[in-house]
Design a protein around this nucleic acid. Structure first.
Length: 576
RNA sequence: UCCAGAGUGGUGUAGCGGUAGCACGCGAGGCUCUGAACCUCGAAGCCGGGGUUCGAAUCCCCGCUCUGGAUCCA
């Protein structure tokens, strides 16, 4: 580059990297020397369900920040409610995070690790006179709390002495009282406009076997009493959570203020991810699984990490998606095509091309000798020369896609039709002479002739223009497989928007799954291994189902179709 | 009704007092042995009203709308 050259548009010195508001906060805090200039974040799932794409956003945020600023991100299971939590979920969550490509240092943490310390903190607050044991029943507690518009009423047990509270709390731990008989509450303000500050419960009595601590405890801390202190214990500097915890921040800070903790984590909230045509609610996803509307948490139609994984998504594409959608404080719904495009962009670069005919229609090339077999050279990936080439056999009888033939070709349709031409990808131009039908009038076979001079992309001698190019598979050499096509799980963009008494399940898309048998794949695909991904030319990206596929009966999942501008044209035409 | 938060093209996101940018989507064209990819061009936006200022998406005030908040859930 000569000295006169203007700086390139992408010049690093001229482009300020765009950052989201949390990156900005972190950068400022580090510059200001907060937490000795060290960033520590955490991802704190409750092990009571499978992770979904919304969690992926939080994971990418927390782990991504740690990577970017040379900090650390802890994986901490928020396991303070033994009634709901299970080891199975712990395992799946770890597997999902690892799949996404993040590293928590091999050492997962648990809020339950801190039960003893949290208990001591509770006694400390009792000692300070800011926590008390309350004998109100759950129902009474609710009544005394008031409503959003009506202030609460002080509990009659609010003014017990420190000694009395300590005694009761120790006996709670010792198991002297029934489940639900007493609670430990923070003495804050029953008239606070923030409901979370109306003497929130810190501990409840609950006899349930905990997945880690077994039966050693019968009192368990509530989320609010566990989360901030767990952050502090771990030296977390930035505690990122979703918007619905905004009203909890004063309480988060209150506990920290009243305990003598060295570290001072800071909670910042961001908007959770919503995606069109699906739901990101653990509860509702569970309903779909339990109601058998899907085959399981890993059904390829599910927005769970396991579902995306099985469908054929790459971890890179999910991370790229998370980076594209950004992070903000505004509740928003991201268009599903964003996710799909992230996958397309990734696989377009990396996936090898193959030919596959999903709905086969036999074509006999009448002037092609029966015993003739040509090996045609095909490019494995036009985006990556190093992927090389392969050879595919061409014979007299082949299969083409039913959709690539129309008896009555609409305007602008430039594939095969009676007395029309089309090019076989990597092969010759063929001309359709005759349409063979069965007694029901259904097209069963096409009789065609090929133009020998049109090999290697050469045009027909008579100057005819052939615009259409279609994929095909030799009838004698293809392998048969099952292919599963997926569409949106819900038929409406905002399935959660339902009228009173409605249910998002009313919006389920009845044709979200289409199973195709007898698909014909190019011969080399016989060796495809579970999880392998390919672009089936002109169709989309497909991967071998890791659960149901067998070497002798392959099952492919369509992860995402290719963009289809013909479908768009046709749709537009039919509207007019 | 009370508290908290948020409103920038269709969607998502930058901008932090000085000509409103990016991505996807959309439209038009080009290229192409994938109607893909790629390239070019284009349409489209600061919730409303007042103020402060030479100058406001940005600061102030008043509205409007949306989201969240009453589990011994997280």
């Amino acid at each position: 580059m000569s000295a006169e050259d203007p700086p390139a548009a992408g010049d690093e010195t001229t482009v300020r990297t765009k950052q989201n508001f949390i990156q900005a906060i972190v950068q400022q805090d580090i510059a200001a020397g907060k937490n000795d200039g060290k960033l520590v974040t955490r991802f704190p799932p409750e092990p009571n369900g499978y992770l979904h794409v919304g969690h992926a956003k939080a994971i990418c945020l927390n782990f991504g920040l740690a990577e970017e600023f040379g900090g650390r991100c802890n994986l901490r299971f928020d396991d303070t409610n033994p009634a709901k939590e299970e080891q199975e979920y712990v395992d799946s969550i770890q597997s999902d995070i690892a799949w996404l490509g993040f590293d928590w240092g091999g050492q997962e943490l648990y809020a339950s690790n801190y039960f003893e310390q949290l208990y001591a903190m509770a006694e400390q607050l009792i000692g300070k006179g800011v926590a008390y044991v309350c004998d109100l029943s759950p129902e009474q507690t609710r009544e005394y709390r008031g409503t959003v518009t009506k202030v609460g009423t002080d509990s009659p047990f609010r003014d017990r002495t420190v000694e009395e509270n300590l005694d009761y709390f120790r006996r709670m731990r010792a198991g002297e009282f029934e489940d639900g008989a007493r609670t430990l509450r923070a003495k804050i303000d029953m008239a606070s406009p923030n409901m979370n500050m109306r003497d929130p419960v810190m501990y409840r009595i609950l006899r349930a076997t905990h997945h880690r601590t077994g039966d050693t405890w019968c009192v368990y801390p509530m989320y609010d009493f566990a989360h901030g202190q767990s952050d502090a214990i771990e030296g977390v500097s930035h505690s990122l959570c979703t918007l619905e915890f905004e009203n909890h921040r004063p309480l988060y800070d209150w506990f920290l203020d009243h305990l003598d903790l060295r570290a001072r984590p800071e909670q910042t909230e961001f908007a959770r991810l919503n995606l069109t045509y699906t739901i990101t609610s653990k509860r509702k996803l569970l309903e779909l699984v339990e109601g058998r509307h899907v085959s399981g948490w890993d059904d390829p139609r599910m927005p769970t990490i396991q579902g995306l994984r099985r469908r054929g998504y790459t971890p890179e594409s999910v991370r790229e998606f998370c980076s594209r959608i950004g992070v903000a404080r505004f509740n928003s719904t991201v268009d599903m095509v964003q996710l799909e495009n992230a996958l397309r962009d990734d696989l377009n670069q990396r996936a090898e091309r193959r030919m596959a005919v999903l709905r086969p229609l036999k074509v006999v090339i009448e002037n092609y000798p029966e015993d003739k077999l040509e090996e045609r050279e095909a490019i494995n990936n036009p985006e990556d020369e190093s992927a090389g080439t392969r050879s595919i056999p061409l014979t007299r009888e082949i299969y083409i896609e039913r959709d690539d033939f129309r008896e009555d070709a609409p305007r602008k349709y430039f594939r095969l039709a009676p007395d029309r031409d089309v090019r076989l990808r990597y092969g010759y131009v063929i001309h359709c002479n005759e349409v063979v039908k069965d007694e029901r009038g259904e097209v069963t076979e096409l009789r065609c002739t090929y133009l020998p001079e049109t090999a290697d992309g050469q045009p027909p001698e008579d100057g005819r223009k052939v615009k259409g190019i279609i994929h095909w598979v030799s009838a004698a050499h293809g392998v048969t497989a099952e292919v599963r096509l997926y569409d949106h799980l819900f038929s409406t963009p905002h399935p959660g928007d339902v009228p009173e008494g409605g249910d998002c399940k009313d919006n389920l898309n009845p044709s979200s799954l289409e199973v195709l048998q007898g698909c014909r794949l190019e011969r080399g695909l016989a060796d495809a291994k579970p999880g392998d991904r390919y672009q089936f030319e002109r169709l989309g990206y497909f991967s071998v189902d890791p659960i149901d596929s067998r070497p002798d009966s392959l099952v492919f999942n369509r992860a995402v179709s290719l963009r289809d501008s013909w479908a768009k044209i046709e749709k537009k035409g039919s509207k007019k």
